[in-house]
Write a protein that binds this DNA or RNA. Structure first.
Lengths: 105, 105
DNA sequence: GAGCTAAATAACCATATCGCTACATAGTTA
DNA sequence: TAACTATGTAGCGATATGGTTATTTAGCTC
């Protein structure tokens, strides 16, 4: 059974959520557990505005959950599938380039 | 262990190869086995030039193999991981939207 | 309410890339 | 060689989006 253009578009959108280094860096941070926006900003080398924007993308794609706690907003990985995909892709890259250091989000 | 920016970039590039409907459509066609460019063009609703361009992306990302046969060039899926990733993403989308038809590349 | 902190949004620029048309290249056959 | 087919490439316009700065909104504390 083949997917329609509309369905392919939705699949592509999900992959696209993973297709930026900054969003992957956020996922990498969230691997340790729920974090506030500020905590994430402290770890990454980009602005708070950008982190908020990318978190919005991730949340819209259903990859992270959002929870308000006072003035803070806590984000967490929504589905183990997120880490599973990263793991598979890292494995692939490790296979393709054993010379460089192992990759793992 | 956290990935460097350079490593995250490489992971993102791999995901990006999956992040376009046309490239996913090509992968979907190749699921049946090795195909020539013309055969792929016949199945998709886009130009031969565009198919060649997207095949170049897929090949550069290591997702498809390339084999010349006379005047033809045959492409095939390079790694079962490619279909595995598609399968996982489709599963995720099916979970998120059970109301619509099942997705499967 | 005033002042403060956390997060989101707006507006903008720069860059990337999708798909197109036109053309170039390579391999086959007459 | 000429003509034909299969594939790749160049260049273009339109669109999308990553990151920035500036601003806004929401919630806390005094």
């Amino acid at each position: 059974m083949k997917l329609s253009l509309d369905q392919l578009e939705r699949v592509a959108n999900l992959f696209r959520a993973f297709a930026e280094p900054t969003r992957l860096a956020i996922i990498q941070e969230l691997k340790a557990g729920e974090l506030s926006v500020t905590r994430i900003v402290d770890e990454l080398h980009t602005s708070q505005a950008n982190v908020s924007k990318q978190l919005k993308s991730l949340h819209h794609a259903g990859l992270v959950t959002r929870r308000k706690l006072g003035t803070q907003v806590l984000y967490a990985i929504a589905d183990p599938m997120v880490l599973e995909l990263c793991r598979i892709v890292c494995e692939k890259l490790n296979q393709d380039a054993l010379s460089r250091g192992k990759l793992r989000i």
